[in-house]
Write a protein that binds this DNA or RNA. Structure first.
Lengths: 221, 221
DNA sequence: GCAAAAGTGTTGGGCCTACACCCATGC
DNA sequence: GCATGGGTGTAGGCCCAACACTTTTGC
Protein backbone atom coordinates (compact mmCIF):
# COMPACT_ATOMS: atom_id res chain seq x y z
CA UNK A 1 0.00 0.00 0.00
CA UNK A 2 1.34 3.34 -1.05
CA UNK A 3 -0.13 6.79 -1.43
CA UNK A 4 0.80 9.26 -4.14
CA UNK A 5 0.00 12.95 -4.26
CA UNK A 6 -0.56 14.82 -7.48
CA UNK A 7 -0.06 18.40 -6.36
CA UNK A 8 -0.84 21.40 -8.50
CA UNK A 9 0.31 24.96 -8.02
CA UNK A 10 -0.35 28.13 -9.92
CA UNK A 11 1.51 31.30 -10.69
CA UNK A 12 0.55 34.08 -13.03
CA UNK A 13 3.82 33.65 -14.88
CA UNK A 14 3.78 29.92 -15.57
CA UNK A 15 0.14 28.99 -15.19
CA UNK A 16 -0.66 25.64 -13.62
CA UNK A 17 2.33 23.54 -12.57
CA UNK A 18 2.88 20.08 -11.17
CA UNK A 19 5.03 19.13 -8.19
CA UNK A 20 7.54 16.34 -8.86
CA UNK A 21 10.45 14.79 -7.01
CA UNK A 22 13.59 13.16 -8.34
CA UNK A 23 13.79 9.60 -7.04
CA UNK A 24 16.78 8.88 -4.84
CA UNK A 25 16.49 5.10 -4.79
CA UNK A 26 15.74 2.27 -7.19
CA UNK A 27 13.50 1.43 -8.93
CA UNK A 28 13.53 4.41 -11.28
CA UNK A 29 16.42 6.02 -9.37
CA UNK A 30 17.02 9.44 -10.90
CA UNK A 31 13.63 9.62 -12.61
CA UNK A 32 11.10 12.27 -11.83
CA UNK A 33 8.03 11.00 -10.02
CA UNK A 34 4.91 12.06 -8.21
CA UNK A 35 5.65 12.37 -4.48
CA UNK A 36 4.42 9.52 -2.32
CA UNK A 37 5.39 6.45 -0.35
CA UNK A 38 4.32 3.60 1.86
CA UNK A 39 1.46 3.87 4.33
CA UNK A 40 2.40 3.12 7.93
CA UNK A 41 0.40 0.54 9.84
CA UNK A 42 -1.29 2.95 12.19
CA UNK A 43 -1.85 6.04 10.07
CA UNK A 44 -4.76 6.98 7.86
CA UNK A 45 -4.28 7.40 4.12
CA UNK A 46 -4.61 11.16 4.41
CA UNK A 47 -2.01 11.31 7.16
CA UNK A 48 0.34 9.25 5.02
CA UNK A 49 -0.02 11.66 2.11
CA UNK A 50 0.67 14.70 4.25
CA UNK A 51 3.62 13.04 5.95
CA UNK A 52 5.22 11.98 2.68
CA UNK A 53 4.73 15.39 1.15
CA UNK A 54 6.26 17.03 4.17
CA UNK A 55 9.23 14.65 4.12
CA UNK A 56 9.88 14.87 0.42
CA UNK A 57 9.12 18.46 -0.41
CA UNK A 58 8.48 20.37 2.80
CA UNK A 59 5.25 21.73 1.34
CA UNK A 60 1.99 21.94 3.21
CA UNK A 61 -1.03 21.55 1.00
CA UNK A 62 -4.15 23.52 1.16
CA UNK A 63 -6.70 21.21 -0.42
CA UNK A 64 -6.60 17.44 -0.61
CA UNK A 65 -9.02 14.91 -1.99
CA UNK A 66 -8.80 11.30 -2.96
CA UNK A 67 -8.43 10.81 -6.67
CA UNK A 68 -8.31 7.15 -7.63
CA UNK A 69 -6.73 3.87 -6.57
CA UNK A 70 -4.39 2.21 -9.00
CA UNK A 71 -4.02 -1.52 -8.52
CA UNK A 72 -2.91 -3.33 -11.65
CA UNK A 73 -0.73 -6.27 -10.48
CA UNK A 74 2.14 -5.23 -12.78
CA UNK A 75 2.25 -1.52 -12.04
CA UNK A 76 5.28 -1.73 -9.74
CA UNK A 77 8.31 -3.83 -10.74
CA UNK A 78 9.10 -4.76 -7.11
CA UNK A 79 5.89 -6.54 -6.16
CA UNK A 80 2.15 -6.11 -5.97
CA UNK A 81 1.67 -2.55 -4.80
CA UNK A 82 -1.65 -0.79 -4.74
CA UNK A 83 -1.46 2.98 -4.68
CA UNK A 84 -4.14 5.38 -3.53
CA UNK A 85 -3.60 8.60 -5.45
CA UNK A 86 -4.59 11.95 -3.99
CA UNK A 87 -5.04 15.24 -5.67
CA UNK A 88 -3.77 18.36 -3.94
CA UNK A 89 -3.67 22.10 -4.46
CA UNK A 90 -1.32 24.61 -2.88
CA UNK A 91 -1.73 28.34 -2.55
CA UNK A 92 0.25 30.57 -4.81
CA UNK A 93 2.23 31.90 -1.84
CA UNK A 94 3.47 28.37 -1.12
CA UNK A 95 4.33 27.92 -4.73
CA UNK A 96 7.99 28.88 -4.47
CA UNK A 97 8.95 27.12 -1.27
CA UNK A 98 10.63 23.81 -1.90
CA UNK A 99 12.98 21.77 0.15
CA UNK A 100 14.75 18.57 -0.79
CA UNK A 101 15.16 16.02 1.95
CA UNK A 102 15.74 12.36 2.69
CA UNK A 103 13.67 10.55 0.09
CA UNK A 104 14.29 12.77 -2.93
CA UNK A 105 17.37 14.42 -4.34
CA UNK A 106 15.25 17.26 -5.54
CA UNK A 107 11.72 18.54 -5.81
CA UNK A 108 10.51 20.99 -8.42
CA UNK A 109 7.56 22.47 -10.25
CA UNK A 110 6.95 21.64 -13.91
CA UNK A 111 4.52 23.15 -16.35
CA UNK A 112 2.50 20.70 -18.43
CA UNK A 113 4.47 21.68 -21.49
CA UNK A 114 7.83 20.84 -19.98
CA UNK A 115 7.09 17.58 -18.22
CA UNK A 116 9.91 15.05 -17.91
CA UNK A 117 9.36 11.32 -18.33
CA UNK A 118 7.75 9.95 -15.18
CA UNK A 119 8.43 6.79 -13.15
CA UNK A 120 5.99 3.86 -12.76
CA UNK A 121 2.51 4.55 -14.11
CA UNK A 122 2.68 8.12 -12.90
CA UNK A 123 1.93 9.56 -16.30
CA UNK A 124 -1.41 7.79 -16.20
CA UNK A 125 -2.09 9.01 -12.68
CA UNK A 126 -1.29 12.53 -13.80
CA UNK A 127 -3.69 12.30 -16.73
CA UNK A 128 -6.51 11.26 -14.45
CA UNK A 129 -5.66 14.17 -12.17
CA UNK A 130 -5.66 16.76 -14.89
CA UNK A 131 -8.99 15.52 -16.11
CA UNK A 132 -10.36 15.75 -12.58
CA UNK A 133 -9.00 19.24 -12.06
CA UNK A 134 -10.39 20.48 -15.38
CA UNK A 135 -13.75 18.95 -14.68
CA UNK A 136 -14.00 19.99 -11.09
CA UNK A 137 -13.26 23.68 -11.37
CA UNK A 138 -16.43 24.09 -13.39
CA UNK A 139 -18.74 22.87 -10.64
CA UNK A 140 -16.84 23.43 -7.40
CA UNK A 141 -15.00 26.54 -6.26
CA UNK A 142 -11.63 24.86 -5.92
CA UNK A 143 -9.89 27.39 -8.14
CA UNK A 144 -9.54 29.68 -5.13
CA UNK A 145 -7.39 27.08 -3.40
CA UNK A 146 -4.66 27.75 -5.96
CA UNK A 147 -4.62 31.51 -5.51
CA UNK A 148 -3.47 33.66 -2.64
CA UNK A 149 -5.97 34.50 0.04
CA UNK A 150 -6.33 37.93 -1.57
CA UNK A 151 -6.05 38.08 -5.31
CA UNK A 152 -6.86 40.43 -8.17
CA UNK A 153 -9.77 39.27 -10.24
CA UNK A 154 -7.63 38.79 -13.30
CA UNK A 155 -5.75 35.98 -11.53
CA UNK A 156 -8.94 34.00 -11.29
CA UNK A 157 -9.73 34.74 -14.89
CA UNK A 158 -6.29 33.63 -16.09
CA UNK A 159 -6.48 30.49 -14.01
CA UNK A 160 -9.79 29.47 -15.53
CA UNK A 161 -8.66 30.45 -18.98
CA UNK A 162 -5.54 28.34 -18.82
CA UNK A 163 -7.25 25.35 -17.24
CA UNK A 164 -10.19 25.32 -19.59
CA UNK A 165 -7.95 25.96 -22.55
CA UNK A 166 -10.22 28.55 -24.06
CA UNK A 167 -10.48 32.32 -23.89
CA UNK A 168 -12.87 33.69 -21.31
CA UNK A 169 -14.99 36.77 -21.76
CA UNK A 170 -13.86 39.04 -18.97
CA UNK A 171 -17.15 40.84 -18.47
CA UNK A 172 -19.34 37.77 -18.54
CA UNK A 173 -17.01 35.81 -16.29
CA UNK A 174 -16.91 38.54 -13.69
CA UNK A 175 -20.65 39.02 -13.84
CA UNK A 176 -21.22 35.32 -13.28
CA UNK A 177 -18.75 34.90 -10.44
CA UNK A 178 -19.79 38.07 -8.64
CA UNK A 179 -23.48 37.22 -8.95
CA UNK A 180 -22.88 34.10 -6.88
CA UNK A 181 -21.99 36.34 -3.98
CA UNK A 182 -19.08 34.23 -2.78
CA UNK A 183 -16.34 36.79 -3.42
CA UNK A 184 -15.73 39.80 -1.19
CA UNK A 185 -14.22 42.81 -2.85
CA UNK A 186 -11.64 44.39 -0.55
CA UNK A 187 -10.80 48.07 -0.08
CA UNK A 188 -7.35 47.37 -1.30
CA UNK A 189 -5.62 47.48 -4.63
CA UNK A 190 -3.10 44.99 -5.94
CA UNK A 191 0.36 46.45 -5.97
CA UNK A 192 1.34 47.49 -9.42
CA UNK A 193 3.24 44.92 -11.46
CA UNK A 194 4.94 47.58 -13.52
CA UNK A 195 2.39 47.72 -16.28
CA UNK A 196 -1.25 48.58 -16.41
CA UNK A 197 -3.80 49.67 -13.91
CA UNK A 198 -3.82 47.83 -10.59
CA UNK A 199 -7.08 46.06 -9.79
CA UNK A 200 -8.99 45.59 -6.57
CA UNK A 201 -8.22 42.57 -4.45
CA UNK A 202 -10.85 39.91 -3.83
CA UNK A 203 -11.24 37.18 -1.28
CA UNK A 204 -13.19 33.93 -1.38
CA UNK A 205 -15.83 33.85 1.34
CA UNK A 206 -16.16 30.23 2.38
CA UNK A 207 -18.74 30.90 5.09
CA UNK A 208 -21.07 32.49 2.57
CA UNK A 209 -20.42 29.72 0.09
CA UNK A 210 -21.31 27.02 2.61
CA UNK A 211 -24.48 28.86 3.58
CA UNK A 212 -25.55 29.26 -0.03
CA UNK A 213 -24.74 25.61 -0.76
CA UNK A 214 -27.08 24.52 1.98
CA UNK A 215 -29.83 26.59 0.45
CA UNK A 216 -29.45 24.77 -2.84
CA UNK A 217 -27.08 27.14 -4.63
CA UNK A 218 -25.26 25.58 -7.52
CA UNK A 219 -21.74 26.69 -8.40
CA UNK A 220 -21.08 26.49 -12.10
CA UNK A 221 -18.76 28.22 -14.54
CA UNK B 1 -6.59 -5.22 0.73
CA UNK B 2 -10.21 -5.90 0.04
CA UNK B 3 -12.70 -4.75 -2.52
CA UNK B 4 -16.36 -4.04 -1.86
CA UNK B 5 -19.12 -3.61 -4.38
CA UNK B 6 -22.09 -1.36 -3.80
CA UNK B 7 -24.54 -2.70 -6.36
CA UNK B 8 -27.79 -0.99 -7.22
CA UNK B 9 -30.75 -2.45 -9.04
CA UNK B 10 -34.06 -1.01 -10.10
CA UNK B 11 -37.58 -2.24 -10.54
CA UNK B 12 -40.70 -0.27 -11.21
CA UNK B 13 -42.30 -1.74 -8.13
CA UNK B 14 -39.65 -1.04 -5.53
CA UNK B 15 -37.60 1.70 -7.09
CA UNK B 16 -33.86 1.64 -6.51
CA UNK B 17 -32.58 -1.23 -4.37
CA UNK B 18 -29.26 -2.26 -2.88
CA UNK B 19 -27.64 -5.70 -3.04
CA UNK B 20 -26.54 -7.11 0.33
CA UNK B 21 -25.25 -10.42 1.61
CA UNK B 22 -25.62 -12.00 5.01
CA UNK B 23 -22.16 -12.69 6.44
CA UNK B 24 -21.38 -16.34 7.03
CA UNK B 25 -18.25 -15.86 9.13
CA UNK B 26 -16.98 -13.61 11.89
CA UNK B 27 -16.51 -10.74 12.31
CA UNK B 28 -20.11 -9.58 12.00
CA UNK B 29 -21.30 -13.12 11.36
CA UNK B 30 -25.02 -12.94 10.58
CA UNK B 31 -24.98 -9.23 9.78
CA UNK B 32 -25.93 -7.86 6.41
CA UNK B 33 -23.02 -6.40 4.47
CA UNK B 34 -21.97 -5.09 1.12
CA UNK B 35 -20.53 -7.93 -0.97
CA UNK B 36 -16.75 -8.05 -1.24
CA UNK B 37 -13.60 -9.78 -0.15
CA UNK B 38 -9.86 -10.04 -0.36
CA UNK B 39 -7.92 -9.26 -3.50
CA UNK B 40 -5.74 -12.09 -4.79
CA UNK B 41 -2.09 -11.45 -5.46
CA UNK B 42 -2.26 -11.66 -9.22
CA UNK B 43 -5.65 -10.19 -10.03
CA UNK B 44 -6.64 -6.62 -10.73
CA UNK B 45 -9.04 -4.80 -8.43
CA UNK B 46 -11.80 -4.99 -11.03
CA UNK B 47 -11.32 -8.72 -11.47
CA UNK B 48 -11.51 -9.15 -7.71
CA UNK B 49 -14.82 -7.31 -7.55
CA UNK B 50 -16.36 -9.35 -10.32
CA UNK B 51 -15.09 -12.61 -8.85
CA UNK B 52 -16.42 -11.84 -5.38
CA UNK B 53 -19.78 -10.79 -6.72
CA UNK B 54 -20.01 -13.93 -8.77
CA UNK B 55 -19.06 -16.10 -5.78
CA UNK B 56 -21.34 -14.43 -3.29
CA UNK B 57 -24.40 -13.58 -5.32
CA UNK B 58 -24.10 -15.13 -8.78
CA UNK B 59 -24.92 -11.77 -10.35
CA UNK B 60 -23.13 -10.30 -13.29
CA UNK B 61 -22.98 -6.54 -13.27
CA UNK B 62 -23.51 -4.30 -16.15
CA UNK B 63 -21.68 -1.15 -15.11
CA UNK B 64 -18.80 -0.84 -12.69
CA UNK B 65 -16.71 2.09 -11.60
CA UNK B 66 -14.38 2.75 -8.74
CA UNK B 67 -16.01 4.73 -5.97
CA UNK B 68 -13.61 5.48 -3.13
CA UNK B 69 -10.96 3.82 -1.03
CA UNK B 70 -11.59 3.51 2.69
CA UNK B 71 -8.48 3.20 4.78
CA UNK B 72 -8.98 4.33 8.36
CA UNK B 73 -6.74 2.11 10.52
CA UNK B 74 -9.61 1.11 12.79
CA UNK B 75 -12.24 0.31 10.18
CA UNK B 76 -11.84 -3.49 10.45
CA UNK B 77 -11.61 -5.13 13.89
CA UNK B 78 -9.26 -7.87 12.63
CA UNK B 79 -6.35 -5.77 11.43
CA UNK B 80 -5.45 -2.91 9.15
CA UNK B 81 -7.51 -3.49 6.05
CA UNK B 82 -7.88 -1.00 3.23
CA UNK B 83 -10.89 -1.47 1.05
CA UNK B 84 -11.40 -0.19 -2.45
CA UNK B 85 -15.11 0.30 -2.91
CA UNK B 86 -16.74 -0.04 -6.31
CA UNK B 87 -20.09 1.10 -7.48
CA UNK B 88 -22.11 -1.17 -9.73
CA UNK B 89 -25.41 -1.20 -11.60
CA UNK B 90 -27.35 -4.22 -12.83
CA UNK B 91 -30.03 -4.33 -15.47
CA UNK B 92 -33.60 -4.71 -14.38
CA UNK B 93 -33.76 -8.18 -15.99
CA UNK B 94 -30.96 -9.33 -13.69
CA UNK B 95 -32.72 -7.83 -10.75
CA UNK B 96 -34.47 -11.00 -9.60
CA UNK B 97 -31.72 -13.54 -10.02
CA UNK B 98 -29.92 -14.29 -6.81
CA UNK B 99 -27.95 -17.28 -5.62
CA UNK B 100 -26.44 -17.86 -2.21
CA UNK B 101 -23.12 -19.65 -2.15
CA UNK B 102 -20.00 -20.28 -0.09
CA UNK B 103 -19.28 -16.93 1.48
CA UNK B 104 -22.79 -15.80 2.29
CA UNK B 105 -25.79 -17.52 3.75
CA UNK B 106 -28.01 -15.31 1.73
CA UNK B 107 -28.06 -12.43 -0.69
CA UNK B 108 -30.98 -10.07 -1.15
CA UNK B 109 -32.16 -6.73 -2.44
CA UNK B 110 -33.18 -3.97 -0.02
CA UNK B 111 -34.87 -0.68 -0.67
CA UNK B 112 -33.35 2.35 1.03
CA UNK B 113 -36.31 2.56 3.34
CA UNK B 114 -35.91 -0.97 4.66
CA UNK B 115 -32.17 -1.21 5.13
CA UNK B 116 -30.89 -3.47 7.91
CA UNK B 117 -27.95 -2.50 10.09
CA UNK B 118 -24.74 -3.01 8.13
CA UNK B 119 -21.38 -4.56 9.12
CA UNK B 120 -18.08 -2.63 9.36
CA UNK B 121 -18.22 0.92 7.98
CA UNK B 122 -20.51 -0.22 5.21
CA UNK B 123 -23.17 2.32 6.05
CA UNK B 124 -20.67 5.04 5.32
CA UNK B 125 -19.62 3.40 2.07
CA UNK B 126 -23.26 3.18 1.09
CA UNK B 127 -23.82 6.85 1.78
CA UNK B 128 -20.94 7.82 -0.46
CA UNK B 129 -22.36 5.56 -3.16
CA UNK B 130 -25.83 7.01 -3.02
CA UNK B 131 -24.41 10.48 -3.25
CA UNK B 132 -22.36 9.44 -6.26
CA UNK B 133 -25.32 7.79 -7.96
CA UNK B 134 -27.57 10.80 -7.39
CA UNK B 135 -24.93 13.17 -8.64
CA UNK B 136 -23.85 11.13 -11.59
CA UNK B 137 -27.19 10.46 -13.24
CA UNK B 138 -27.54 14.18 -13.87
CA UNK B 139 -24.45 14.44 -16.03
CA UNK B 140 -23.85 10.94 -17.37
CA UNK B 141 -26.35 8.57 -18.97
CA UNK B 142 -25.88 5.80 -16.45
CA UNK B 143 -29.57 5.56 -15.67
CA UNK B 144 -30.01 3.32 -18.70
CA UNK B 145 -27.70 0.76 -17.11
CA UNK B 146 -30.40 0.07 -14.52
CA UNK B 147 -33.20 -0.48 -17.01
CA UNK B 148 -33.82 -3.28 -19.46
CA UNK B 149 -32.37 -2.96 -22.90
CA UNK B 150 -35.81 -1.95 -24.13
CA UNK B 151 -37.94 0.08 -21.77
CA UNK B 152 -41.02 2.28 -21.81
CA UNK B 153 -40.23 5.94 -21.36
CA UNK B 154 -42.07 6.09 -18.08
CA UNK B 155 -39.51 3.73 -16.53
CA UNK B 156 -36.79 6.27 -17.16
CA UNK B 157 -38.96 9.00 -15.79
CA UNK B 158 -39.76 7.07 -12.60
CA UNK B 159 -36.13 6.17 -12.12
CA UNK B 160 -35.05 9.80 -12.29
CA UNK B 161 -37.93 10.90 -10.17
CA UNK B 162 -37.13 8.47 -7.39
CA UNK B 163 -33.39 9.09 -7.49
CA UNK B 164 -33.64 12.84 -7.53
CA UNK B 165 -36.37 12.78 -4.94
CA UNK B 166 -38.50 15.32 -6.69
CA UNK B 167 -41.35 15.16 -9.19
CA UNK B 168 -40.39 15.41 -12.83
CA UNK B 169 -42.42 17.17 -15.47
CA UNK B 170 -43.18 14.47 -17.98
CA UNK B 171 -43.35 16.71 -21.02
CA UNK B 172 -40.21 18.68 -20.29
CA UNK B 173 -38.25 15.58 -19.34
CA UNK B 174 -39.17 13.76 -22.51
CA UNK B 175 -38.45 16.81 -24.63
CA UNK B 176 -35.01 17.15 -23.07
CA UNK B 177 -34.01 13.51 -23.30
CA UNK B 178 -35.32 13.03 -26.82
CA UNK B 179 -33.65 16.19 -28.05
CA UNK B 180 -30.27 14.70 -27.15
CA UNK B 181 -30.87 12.08 -29.82
CA UNK B 182 -29.49 9.19 -27.79
CA UNK B 183 -32.73 7.22 -27.50
CA UNK B 184 -34.19 5.18 -30.33
CA UNK B 185 -37.94 4.75 -30.33
CA UNK B 186 -38.85 1.21 -31.36
CA UNK B 187 -41.84 -0.01 -33.38
CA UNK B 188 -42.98 -1.96 -30.41
CA UNK B 189 -45.30 -1.33 -27.51
CA UNK B 190 -44.77 -2.34 -23.92
CA UNK B 191 -47.05 -5.18 -22.95
CA UNK B 192 -49.94 -3.94 -20.93
CA UNK B 193 -49.51 -4.06 -17.19
CA UNK B 194 -53.22 -4.36 -16.62
CA UNK B 195 -53.90 -0.66 -16.25
CA UNK B 196 -53.50 2.24 -18.57
CA UNK B 197 -52.34 2.71 -22.08
CA UNK B 198 -49.18 0.84 -23.09
CA UNK B 199 -46.33 3.06 -24.29
CA UNK B 200 -43.70 2.65 -26.98
CA UNK B 201 -40.43 0.98 -26.06
CA UNK B 202 -37.16 2.89 -26.25
CA UNK B 203 -33.55 1.84 -26.42
CA UNK B 204 -30.39 3.68 -25.45
CA UNK B 205 -28.10 4.14 -28.43
CA UNK B 206 -24.58 4.03 -27.09
CA UNK B 207 -22.93 4.42 -30.48
CA UNK B 208 -24.76 7.68 -31.08
CA UNK B 209 -24.00 8.84 -27.57
CA UNK B 210 -20.27 8.21 -27.99
CA UNK B 211 -20.25 10.02 -31.31
CA UNK B 212 -22.07 13.04 -29.89
CA UNK B 213 -19.75 13.07 -26.86
CA UNK B 214 -16.75 13.37 -29.13
CA UNK B 215 -18.33 16.35 -30.82
CA UNK B 216 -18.65 18.12 -27.52
CA UNK B 217 -22.21 17.15 -26.60
CA UNK B 218 -23.00 17.56 -22.95
CA UNK B 219 -25.45 15.22 -21.23
CA UNK B 220 -27.37 16.94 -18.48
CA UNK B 221 -30.70 16.42 -16.81
C1' DG C 1 -68.00 4.02 -18.82
C1' DC C 2 -64.40 4.47 -15.70
C1' DA C 3 -59.79 4.16 -13.97
C1' DA C 4 -55.06 4.38 -15.11
C1' DA C 5 -51.18 5.69 -17.65
C1' DA C 6 -49.30 7.67 -22.29
C1' DG C 7 -48.87 11.24 -25.45
C1' DT C 8 -48.47 15.90 -26.83
C1' DG C 9 -47.34 22.37 -27.62
C1' DT C 10 -47.10 26.92 -26.39
C1' DT C 11 -45.72 30.95 -24.05
C1' DG C 12 -43.23 34.13 -20.95
C1' DG C 13 -39.30 35.10 -18.53
C1' DG C 14 -34.71 34.63 -17.26
C1' DC C 15 -30.21 33.74 -18.40
C1' DC C 16 -26.35 33.61 -21.30
C1' DT C 17 -23.56 35.37 -25.15
C1' DA C 18 -21.61 38.67 -27.89
C1' DC C 19 -19.50 42.81 -28.08
C1' DA C 20 -16.01 47.92 -27.42
C1' DC C 21 -14.66 51.83 -25.13
C1' DC C 22 -12.68 54.47 -21.27
C1' DC C 23 -9.63 54.53 -17.04
C1' DA C 24 -5.52 54.20 -14.02
C1' DT C 25 -0.84 53.42 -13.66
C1' DG C 26 4.50 53.14 -14.78
C1' DC C 27 7.90 54.49 -17.59
C1' DG D 1 2.05 60.24 -24.25
C1' DC D 2 2.13 55.58 -24.82
C1' DA D 3 1.76 50.89 -23.48
C1' DT D 4 -0.47 47.80 -20.52
C1' DG D 5 -3.98 45.74 -18.12
C1' DG D 6 -8.52 46.96 -15.30
C1' DG D 7 -13.22 48.19 -15.22
C1' DT D 8 -17.81 48.37 -17.01
C1' DG D 9 -23.48 47.77 -19.72
C1' DT D 10 -26.78 46.35 -23.05
C1' DA D 11 -29.54 43.95 -26.41
C1' DG D 12 -31.02 39.72 -28.80
C1' DG D 13 -31.69 35.02 -28.75
C1' DC D 14 -32.14 30.75 -26.79
C1' DC D 15 -33.45 27.68 -23.48
C1' DC D 16 -36.18 26.25 -19.70
C1' DA D 17 -40.13 25.99 -16.62
C1' DA D 18 -44.87 26.07 -16.12
C1' DC D 19 -48.94 24.22 -17.41
C1' DA D 20 -53.93 20.52 -19.02
C1' DC D 21 -56.38 17.96 -22.06
C1' DT D 22 -56.95 13.96 -25.12
C1' DT D 23 -56.01 8.98 -26.25
C1' DT D 24 -55.54 4.15 -25.44
C1' DT D 25 -56.07 0.26 -22.88
C1' DG D 26 -58.19 -3.30 -19.22
C1' DC D 27 -61.82 -4.29 -16.52
Amino acid sequence: MTVDAVVFGYSRMDGVSLLLIKRKYDPFKGSWAIPGGFVLDDESLEDAVERELQEETGLRINYLEQLYTFGKPERDPRSRIVSVAYFGLVKSTQFQKLRATTDAEEAAWFTFKKLPKLAFDHKKILNVSIERLRGKITYQPIGFELLDKKFPFSDLEHLYGSLLGRPIDRRNFKKKVMSMGILDELDEKAKSTGAGRPGSLFQFNKATYDRLLKNGMHFEI
